[in-house]
Design a protein around this nucleic acid. Structure first.
Lengths: 209, 209
DNA sequence: TAGATTGTTAATCGATTAACAATC
DNA sequence: TAGATTGTTAATCGATTAACAATC
């Protein structure tokens, strides 16, 4: 199968959300042009990205929204809810675990994990906090596939190792440290994002488009 | 001045943190090779990225860590603390406002903003929650340059508009919606990151390297 | 038919990598 | 000098965009 550009996959996830919104607005059909306008990208980019996976539109007409949503669900693998755990039940971990978007987009937070025994046994938004010792068994028993890392950077690599050992298949890393593993990792790096902003701001002075 | 690849800027921010860590370990000198190993990238990539901004190393020797850190500080524009506000004092906004990494990396959370008057006046990690009505005045008086958006997607565009109008110069957007503005925006999209993971996981089955 | 929009090819643009002279 | 490592050039690789035939 053809190699898919990494940025294209991220855009597919954005098309998915854009289509959901169009559907909420009562539309049944859309075009690459309409979606492109909303997303601030080029229409041909959308058609190109979709073309890696098949032909989903009708020439002269556009795309049936329900149909394209189904297709994107299959492509992204989100037909059924994925079980997710959050490792690290600090403020960030708890906030992520309770975040609307995770449920809305079809993920299920199965548990949080922490090393602090005072937290263990309590619940956050209806989800139990368990001790790290239970992680291995829980992942296997529940079939957890994804771990969201919200631990301090000092313990990030350890937590990632434990998750991988337990059989987790992908990691979403919120800790500001590069972690190494043999499973896919997505990094959300607040400090890097902020510095990228400051760089752009100082280089922009004067040239306001 | 030469055009700098966007990914290169993000990497510079990663080099910065890597160097801080090397310094903590007591090292005074490092090489592109050493950093590359830690970051999981190629050494020539690091040298190339740095070369956009000057010559910071000594051939045959490597880079002086303190010196390179200073240079990166200038390049990224983080010599002095930037004032940042968080818009949206829900769980996520509060967690971000109190997050270690923001202070450690030289940013200062000046205030949180919310429309819920029951929250207004209370404090989170020593930072006051103010009402959205005060945003314009506050940003001007305090010289706030960056806003972190943690509002529900329904009000994301509005909040961004208000921030831009008030004079904010960059936005870090945590809400799962594309927002439009004439200032730099960085997006942190949890749903997109999770779907990018699921895509990789389902395509990976069987080919474990 | 005329207008609209897709899917795809080919061209362009941008980013990464290899290789090596320069030099500490 | 020998070994190490930089800075930079040129080659390669990957992603985006323009353009247009196909077709509804």
């Amino acid at each position: 199968m053809q190699k898919i550009p990494k940025p294209a996959v991220k855009r597919l996830a954005m098309y998915y959300r854009c289509l959901e919104r169009l559907r909420e607005e009562g539309k049944e059909v859309t075009s690459s042009k309409e979606m492109a306008q909303r997303l601030g990208i080029k229409a041909c980019q959308i058609r190109k990205d979709l073309s890696y996976f098949g032909e989903f539109g009708k020439r002269g007409i556009g795309y049936n929204i329900d149909n394209l949503l189904e297709r994107l669900k299959e492509i992204l693998g989100v037909e059924k809810a994925w079980k997710v755990i959050v490792i690290g039940a600090g403020n960030l971990g708890k906030a992520i675990a309770g975040h609307r978007v995770i449920k809305e987009q079809g993920f299920e937070i199965a548990a949080l994990f922490d090393i602090d025994r005072r937290k263990v046994g309590t619940k956050v938004h209806g989800v139990e906090i368990k001790h790290m010792d239970e992680l291995g068994d829980f992942v296997k028993k529940e079939g957890v596939k994804i771990a969201i890392l919200c631990v301090p950077k000092e313990s990030a690599q350890n937590a990632a190792d434990e998750a991988e050992k337990a059989g987790v298949q992908g990691i979403l890393n919120f800790s500001p440290r590069v972690i190494k593993a043999n499973i896919p990792i997505e990094n959300v790096d607040i400090a890097v994002a902020l510095k990228s902003l400051t760089f752009q701001i100082i280089r922009r002075k004067g040239k306001h488009e």
